[in-house]
């Protein structure tokens, strides 16, 4: 008897929208000289009303040619490319490290604390360095941004997958031992399938992190295109509507990333007969 979540979510959304409108009216009150309707139609409001953001979003997506510098779709595509490249790189590194950690005890003890510590270094502190180092090697544009994304997204994968690869219990491992199965066989028939349950939650966190990484990476790299660049430009010129529209697009990007992982998860679940 699973209770429906649609109604509560709709109510919660309605509450948030109402609060937003109230906040917009309150914050824009002086700028609009106390005109209630004007509070929701200013050109550079302190807080735009939700429908203003929706209109701006529509105008800068459907209202522009896709290759135009004013098109949010163009900027989203730029950010998406470094996000996806970074995600792929991060997942690859994460999987590799997880497999190493599970199979080589010394590495597990020596490396794991440093992997954890690596995440306590804010990526942006490293970002200028990464740009400089890669720039000196002649790599600019996509590569440094993808590396920054990868730095954020490999971590959940290592932790989650390492846990998953260790999930098989003594009995199952012993069973395979009685078949005289080697490490590789144990990995393919037991460890890897067991890790699936942990892999997908990690991937969801990883792709969300990759999005943040891709956007944040555009700030110190002096990028002219991409959602982060769009945020920066909006902030220079006080274009609040442009900032919020870019934020909406960034959220959409992150949400579709997570959605894609969920979809993949569903496919795998179906292939495995309804369970992970």
């Amino acid at each position: 008897m699973k209770e429906s979540r649609a109604l509560p979510i709709a109510v919660a959304l309605a509450i948030l929208l109402l609060l937003w409108y109230a906040a917009a009216v309150a914050l824009n009150w002086t700028q609009a000289n106390g005109d209630l309707l004007a509070t929701m139609s200013l050109a550079k409001p302190l807080l735009p009303a939700p429908h203003q953001i929706a209109v701006e979003f529509w105008n800068s997506t459907a209202g522009q040619r896709i290759d135009s510098k004013r098109s949010l779709i163009f900027h989203a595509a730029v950010t998406a490319s470094s996000m996806l490249a970074g995600f792929a790189l991060g997942v690859a590194i994460g999987l590799l490290l997880a497999i190493l950690l599970v199979h080589v005890r010394v590495l597990d003890r020596a490396l794991l604390p440093w992997i954890v510590a690596s995440q306590t270094v804010p990526i942006l502190a490293l970002a200028p360095m990464i740009v400089v180092v890669f720039g000196a090697a002649g790599l600019t544009g996509l590569v440094p941004k993808a590396v920054i994304s990868a730095y954020l997204s490999f971590f959940p994968v290592v932790i989650g997958v390492a846990k998953g690869l260790r999930a098989p219990d003594r009995l199952q491992l012993d069973l395979l031992h009685t078949y005289d199965a080697g490490r590789r066989r144990v990995f393919t028939v037991l460890r890897w399938p067991s890790a699936m349950r942990f892999l997908f939650p990690s991937l969801k966190v990883a792709i969300a992190a990759a999005t943040v990484g891709a956007i944040v990476a555009e700030l110190p790299t002096g990028a002219e295109s991409g959602l982060g660049a769009r945020l920066l430009a909006g902030s220079y010129y006080g274009q609040t509507l442009q900032i919020w529209a870019a934020l909406a697009m960034a959220s959409l990007l992150a949400a579709s990333g997570v959605g894609a992982v969920v979809l993949l998860e569903r496919l795998v679940i179906r292939a495995r007969g309804g369970r992970l």
């Binding site: 969300a208 982060g228 902030s235 006080g238 900032i243 997570v258």
Partner: peptide, 26 residues
């Protein structure tokens, strides 16, 4: 309320919230 707000908050946690920095400056 819990059933309504918790999924929204989990989703919000996955969004690039740092992006509000320019707005916070304003």
């Amino acid at each position: 309320l819990r059933r309504g707000f918790v999924p929204l908050a989990s989703l919000a946690g996955a969004l690039p919230i740092v992006g509000i920095a320019p707005i916070a400056v304003m």
